[in-house]
Every structure is written in structure tokens, then in C-alpha cells.
């Protein structure tokens, strides 16, 4: 019999997953399917599946998320084998190569961790705070703008600046 409660994902869970995994998942799928809409669908499917997974398990489980993404891709290319034969063989080839977002690669090594933290420390204090609030604390851009009394586009500029700096440092080390 119908009941009155309605459980699906608690407030914020979805935004949090989006914040943490969307850029990586989109990069992951875009490299393999070459079609924005399909990459978007696949990313979305990962989130839908994650909704049924114990959230606690996800705290330290980016490897889990990306192996889920990989499985999804395999399922899909198997299903589309006839139509997308050339594509699925391309996927297989790329799998053999080195990949920035490989499930194993995602768990950063100790050395990379210290490069990342050093790069964050080099940022101006306010830029660092804004970046950490957004990336780690899941605070909305608008809310950050209100707190620091700057416009939304300024928040975005600060975030992009922080990202670019950290990425360059990681590349310098490599």
C-alpha cells in the first residue's frame, strides 16, 4: 500500500557529488565518446547509480566512482557494438594507454599530495579560502560572493586562477 514518506537522495548530496566528480567524469567520458550529449548522459548515469550507494563509502572512493564510469562505458559500447564498432575499438586502445583519470591513477601518490598542498599554500590567502570553500566545503559560488562581498564573476575568476596555478605546479613536477 502507498505510504506517505519519500526518501531519495538527501538534500545537498547531489550537489556535493556534482562538485566533486563532474569535471573529472566529463573529461573522462569526453575523451572516449567524442559527443557532448552522450558524455553528459553517461556522467548523469554515474550520479544516478551513486545515489543508491552508501554515501559513507564515497568519502574516499574516487577510484570506485571511476571504475563505475569505466564499467558503464564498457556496457554501453557492448550494447552499441554494431553501430559504434569503430568507437568501441578506439576505447579499447585508449584503455591500454596512460590516462590522467585512470581509476588507479586517481588515488594520488604521497609526492603529488605534497605538491598539491604546497601549490595551495602559495596562493594569496583570500584566493585560497575561496577555492577551498568551493572545492572542499561545497559552498555555493553566490554565497562565497556574498561573504567576501565580490561579484559572482569575480568568484569564478578567483577559482579559475587557483585551479590554473595548482595545475601548473603539478605539471612542473611531472
Amino acid at each position: 500500500m502507498p505510504r506517505a514518506n519519500s526518501p531519495p537522495p538527501s538534500d545537498g548530496t547531489f550537489e556535493q557529488l556534482t562538485r566533486r566528480f563532474r569535471p573529472g567524469l566529463m573529461a573522462f567520458f569526453l575523451r572516449r565518446v567524442k559527443n557532448h550529449a552522450e558524455a553528459e548522459d553517461l556522467t548523469q548515469e554515474v550520479f544516478v547509480r551513486l545515489a543508491s550507494v552508501d554515501a559513507d563509502r564515497l568519502q574516499s572512493a574516487d577510484a570506485y566512482v571511476f571504475s563505475m564510469a569505466m564499467n558503464l562505458l564498457r556496457d554501453r559500447s557492448r550494447r552499441h557494438q554494431v553501430r559504434f564498432d569503430h568507437r568501441s575499438s578506439a576505447v579499447a586502445q585508449e584503455d591500454a594507454g596512460v590516462d590522467v583519470l585512470d581509476a588507479q591513477r586517481v588515488a594520488a601518490g604521497q609526492q603529488e599530495l605534497s605538491v598539491l598542498t604546497a601549490a595551495l599554500r602559495e596562493l594569496p590567502e583570500r584566493t585560497r579560502s575561496i577555492f577551498i570553500l568551493y572545492r572542499m566545503e561545497n559552498v555555493d559560488k553566490r554565497e562565497i560572493g556574498r561573504a567576501f562581498e565580490i561579484s559572482l564573476s569575480s568568484v569564478e575568476r578567483e577559482l579559475a586562477r587557483a585551479m590554473a596555478h595548482v595545475t601548473r605546479r603539478v605539471k612542473d613536477e611531472a
Binding site: G24, A27, V100, L101, R121, R135, M136, E137, T167
Partner: peptide, 24 residues
């Protein structure tokens, strides 16, 4: 874009390191 997205993802693992907890 791959480099940046990779860095974005790597930051995930730092979020619970002691230094990062201070920064947070």
C-alpha cells in the same frame, strides 16, 4: 582540460590530509 580535470580530481585525495584540514 584533461590536466585541469585531473588536478581537480587529485585534490579529492588531499582533502583529509592534516595540512589541508588546517587550510580548510
Amino acid at each position: 582540460f584533461d590536466d585541469v580535470a585531473g588536478t581537480w580530481q587529485s585534490l579529492e585525495a588531499t582533502s583529509t590530509s592534516p595540512e589541508l584540514i588546517d587550510m580548510r
